[in-house]
Design a protein around this nucleic acid. Structure first.
Lengths: 338, 338
DNA sequence: CGAAATTAATCAAACGTTTGCGTTGTTTTT
DNA sequence: AAAAACAACGCAAACGTTTGATTAATTTCG
């Protein structure tokens, strides 16, 4: 039994009125009389009429769809963020489509193009690790597709973004370690291309200088965030003349590699580790970090989605004000550990 | 600079030919001469022509979109599965839209309806914990929208599905524990409404009887999978006259609750725990499970997506054969522990 | 050389919905 | 009683693309 979906035309035919009247009736247009309106609605209901979305989208030139491009969905941070995005979108009856760059610049460029072709009404992007050029987003501007970056954002202010202040979070982290008595603190930072790396570095320096300590640049090591890179970084610290007693890891994955390596070398107890919270169960692991920077992915996703929904429904696209939203991050001290 | 996207009409006008020729030219239709074809393609390229998807979808009555409904995207299992789905869909130029039931039956019903209205070409579903009725999927049938269930599947065979054989995996797990010398093995099972609970129970019984041991039903405890429920279940085991020496946990979250509780009671060393792998870093935790059932979420997602793509492109919908695909799961023994 | 086949392109309809404008018929205002 | 206002609806175009049916021009073949 292959039911063809009911159409407005069909209803019009059965009621001997014009399709336009049916359309207006269904939308409570004032120029349709109450009796006809009710007749229309009743018949529509009894025939299980559902508007053909494709037709409406085509007609209106809007898709009621927001696109999300992110590096890797299976990372907890991003799956939580997109979960929030979807929840917010659903409230406003928008649909979410997404795609993963897998941290590859070329792929990201392609996906932006694809999203544009899909005619998304707006785009949320968390940029890939490899991305250092941003002109692939410019075309969206001319097509009037607003973009909001979240978490992994470009290093300039004239875009809309939502992100955590990793700088202030890092200050908190370093202050915490200083207060615990540490005087030599290492940092495994990310690639220099990442804005997030700058922020961590800035926070580090800010905390050090604020406390009138001398800043040793060799205590900050850039790392490609792989296990191999982490081990290399760790080795630099182990051989350092002022061997650190605490280490700030770029994220929980790095922290995991580090803990694994230190356990193997049996030096795990020589270090306090602080990390940034990507994983919910990090606190369950053996020799887990003493503290962790919570970046509130759900909140970030929520805010980014709402800003985008706002932008998509604001009339003048030539609005020159940019949303630069900072979500305060908190240092969560892991109690069970010492 | 508000560029309006280039259309076929525009190209046709500039070239003084008909839109249909442009369309055919772009699609390498044989009835368009080589010279015209190239002229068309060149101009299209130089004008950055991109087909208006909404128009095509509308015209063809297909959306090239597959919908995914799952309980909770932030769970690692599902984010990995949907990550695979998206990868597969992208290969065939399909787009993925998704929505979360948050394990709520009513929400699931609504989402199925919404997906139908969005005119998805096919649907992938992992059903919610609360779902015990399945008639909300029947309507899709009459609209010729194929559905493939994955992982959390309905308890009957006349649907398409991909799932792990939790039964055989559980057999492996129990056998492993028996071989380690355990004679009283507890199982924290899920709600009886879940098919997955039946499978675990069946596997348990199968392994026990195969090894000519007597089956004690009180060693299998149903649980709502919350922390509170887990503790209640644990207490039943602790007070059991044949106190188990090993426990099979429904999933890693349950295992985490259990480990936490046992650590608190300082009885963690009295038990070997086996779990089902939802979390990648479970092996890093303190007193982690001795073994873990890997359910291959990426593979499941991949297979489910490919089956769906297949169904969507198979001509006769009245095909009575159902894909019932079982992904073999493996017992991963956690080496570092003993 | 004329008929048939082939090539290259056009025409027009269709997909379902929305919307500006026009057309009735009725009621109110002056 | 004529003009104006209003209520309730229909007409037709439009959105961009695809596709079956046609036409016109050229080539092939007996």
């Amino acid at each position: 039994m292959q039911s063809k979906p009911t159409t407005i035309k069909e209803i019009a035919r059965l009621l001997n009125i014009s399709p336009s009247s049916v359309s207006r009736g269904l939308h409570d247009h004032p120029s349709i009389g109450a009796v006809t309106r009710e007749k229309i609605k009743q018949l529509a209901k009894s025939l299980n009429y559902e508007p053909n979305n494709a037709a409406i989208l085509f007609q209106k030139g809007k898709t009621y769809t927001i696109g999300v491009i992110l590096p890797e969905l299976s990372e907890h941070f991003f799956s939580t963020a997109i979960s929030a995005i979807e929840d917010e979108a659903l409230k406003k009856n928008y649909t979410v489509i997404f795609a993963q760059s897998h941290d590859d610049y070329d792929q990201e460029v392609k996906l932006v193009e694809k999203m544009k072709n899909q005619r998304v009404d707006g785009l949320l992007v968390s940029i890939s690790k490899d991305t250092s050029k941003f002109n692939h987003f410019e075309k969206l501007n001319s097509f009037n597709i607003p973009v909001v970056f979240f978490d992994r954002i470009p290093p300039f202010k004239n875009v809309h973004y939502v992100a955590c202040s990793l700088e202030s979070a890092t200050v908190k982290a370093i202050n915490y370690l200083l207060k615990k008595g540490h005087r030599s603190i290492g940092m495994i930072n990310g690639p220099t291309t990442l804005f997030a790396s700058d922020e961590r570095k800035d926070g580090y320096m800010q905390a050090i200088t604020f406390n009138r300590l001398k800043f040793d640049p060799s205590l900050i090591v850039n790392c490609d965030l792989t296990e191999k890179g982490t081990i290399e970084a760790a080795n630099q610290f182990l051989n350092h003349k002022r061997k650190p007693t605490a280490i700030v890891a770029f994220n929980d994955y790095v922290a995991l590699f580090l803990i694994k390596y230190f356990k193997k070398l049996n030096v795990i107890n020589d270090f306090d580790i602080v990390s940034y919270a990507n994983l919910p169960i990090i606190s369950y692991i053996d020799h887990s970090p003493v503290a962790s920077v919570e970046q509130y992915p759900y909140l970030q996703g929520q805010k980014a989605a709402n800003i985008l929904l706002d932008l998509m429904n604001s009339p003048n696209s030539e609005n020159q004000a940019f949303y630069n939203t900072i979500v305060e991050s908190d240092l969560i001290v892991n109690e069970g550990k010492d």
